[in-house]
Design a protein around this nucleic acid. Sequence first.
DNA 1: GTTCAATAGTTCTATATTAAACTAATATTT
DNA 2: AAATATTAGTTTAATATAGAACTATTGAAC
Lengths: 157, 157
Amino acid sequence: MPTHFKGSLKTIRSLNAFINLMRASESVIGRLQKRLSAEGLTASQFGALETLLHLGPLCQTELGKKLLKTDGNVTMVVNHLEKRGLVKRVRAGEDRRFVSVHLTPKGRALIQTIFPRHAGAIQEEMSVLSVSEQEKLRNLCRKLGRKNKMIKKEIIK
Amino acid sequence: MPTHFKGSLKTIRSLNAFINLMRASESVIGRLQKRLSAEGLTASQFGALETLLHLGPLCQTELGKKLLKTDGNVTMVVNHLEKRGLVKRVRAGEDRRFVSVHLTPKGRALIQTIFPRHAGAIQEEMSVLSVSEQEKLRNLCRKLGRKNKMIKKEIIK
DNA sequence: GTTCAATAGTTCTATATTAAACTAATATTT
DNA sequence: AAATATTAGTTTAATATAGAACTATTGAAC
C-alpha cells in the first residue's frame, strides 16, 4: 500500500514508513478492540482498569497522562466505569481538588480475569515477529516516542 | 514505559513491543492531528480528501476500505465534507446503489494546499530515524499488517 | 490577608467510531 | 417470474475524543 504521492525520495520514504506504522497499529488495535468489546469493555475502559490494577489508585489527571487522553475524556470513562461499579471515586483529604480513582473488588476481579486473555491475544498478534524483530520494533518506536517528549518540552519552554 | 505485569518473558516481550508501537503511533498521530485541526480538518476528513486526490473518485465502500473505517462512519465523514462543499456525491448510472464521491474544485484546491505541508510534517516526525531505520520499521509493520490479511481471509472462508 | 494565578475536574459542543437495524437496489435461485 | 440473498448506503444508539468554557479549590504575590 505505497503512497501515490509524487515527491522527493526522502519524503516518499518517510510517508511509506509512516503509513505502514499507522496501518499496523490500527489493524492490531482494531482486532484487539473487537476482543475487548466481546468482554464488554471499550479500549479506554480496559486501559483505565489495567492502569489502576498495575499502578494502584490514581487521580484523574495522572490517569489521563498514562492513557494519553484529555481530562474531559477521563471524566467520561470514569463515569461509565463507576456506573458499572468497577471503580469508585474517593476525594483525597489533603487537597480537595483531587479525586483518587480506585478499583472496586468487582472491578479488580474483572480486570484480573480479562487482562491475561488480552495479554495472550497481544502475544499472538506479535508472534509474526521473531524475538529480535520485536526488540527492534520496540527500539524504533521508542525513538519516535522520545522525539515526542523533546517537542513537548520545547512547547512548554 | 515498560509493562508492570508479571508474566513470562515471552509475554512481557510481546507486551513491551506492543506498548511501544501503540505509544509511537498515538503520539505521532496526535501531533499531526493538531496540525490538521489548525487547518480546519479532522484526521478522517483529511484521509478521505487525500485518498480521493491520489486515487480519484471512489464509492463509499471503497473509501471505507482504504481508510479502514466502517460504512456508517464514511457516510458521516462524507456528509461533513459535502456540507462544506469539498466533495460531491454522484449516483453512478449503472448500478444505482453506488455513490461515487468526487472532489469539488474547492476540495481539490484545499487538499492540494494542505497535503504537502502534512507530508512535510510527517517527514519531520520520521526524521529521528535514519533511512535504514525507516525501511526497517516499514518492513516490521508490514509483517504485522500481513497477519491482518491472513486472519481476514480465514474469517471469510 | 485580599487579589491573582494555577490546578483538578466537570460540562458542553462538535466530530468520530462501531455495531446493529434498516432501506433500496441488484443478483441468484428455484 | 417470484422468492431469497446480497450489496451499498443511511440511520440510530452508545461511547470516545479533543478543545473550550466553566467551577471549585489551592497557591502565590503584592
